[in-house]
Computed example of a mutant assay.
Amino acid sequence: MPTLDEVAKKYSATIVRKRGLDIISVPVECDGQIDIGFFRTERKSLGKVLPFLAREEFSPDLYTYGGQTESWLSLFGADEELCHALRTLLDGCATSIEWSGSRATARVSILRGSPDGDSTGGERFFANLAMIANRLETIYVIGRSNDMPQNAGSLGPAKVRKIMLTSIFIGTFSFLMAVHYAFRR
């Protein structure tokens, strides 16, 4: 049976492993600045506190957030193949699926499982992720022909993650400088 890396290579996927999290990406033919995340949970309380993180339902038990997603909801919900592939991965080991520019990315926590944890050795996981990328390409072409917004400057999962990491770094640095200054006096 081929290894997970060999199966990933077959689908032109990249795998980044970080402390119990696999970030698996496949290319999407897209030249827009798209930043949209797909999830199985709604998280109403988070949306009340931070409205820009509110998740919109586009199909039963499938939610999305990112800038200007309301324009794309009807296209996502109308694509049954996309919805089926998203449900399969999000019910399996993926915690989220993100469409960020020219990449469709599945974030897989080892607490939920492994992409190669079934009898196919990861083939089913990568086939579904490739299906998602393929359907997103089609939706992007349709959206571009309908003059849909390309999410430039919007707050989606990738941009929120960058902001949070920068904030943590600046906060930690500021705290350490304050402690250093306090002990020098």
Rank of each mutant, 00 (worst) to 15 (best):
T14A: 08
R161Y: 03
E42S: 09
M164Y: 12
P2S: 08
G92C: 01
F183T: 15
R43I: 00
K18V: 14
K44H: 04
Y11F: 12
K18A: 14
S174C: 15
G67D: 00
D61V: 02
E81P: 05
G77Q: 06
T172L: 15
D31K: 14
R55Q: 03
T41E: 05
K48E: 09
G153F: 10
F58I: 02
C93N: 03
A78M: 07
K10S: 06
T14D: 06
T41L: 07
G66C: 09
N128D: 14
M164S: 11
E81S: 14
T166A: 15
E98P: 02
V49S: 11
Y11S: 01
F125D: 05
F52N: 03
D79G: 06
F173C: 09
P2I: 05
G92L: 00
D147Y: 13
A133F: 13
F126V: 03
R40H: 07
F183H: 11
G32P: 00
A8D: 02
M164K: 14
V108N: 00
F76G: 01
Q33N: 11
I110K: 12
M148F: 15
T41G: 07
T3H: 05
Y181W: 14
T88H: 13
G32A: 11
S74A: 15
Y63F: 10
R107T: 10
S114N: 11
F173Q: 09
G67W: 02
T88F: 10
K162Y: 05
K18Q: 12
A54C: 09
I142A: 13
T14H: 05
R185L: 13
N151L: 06
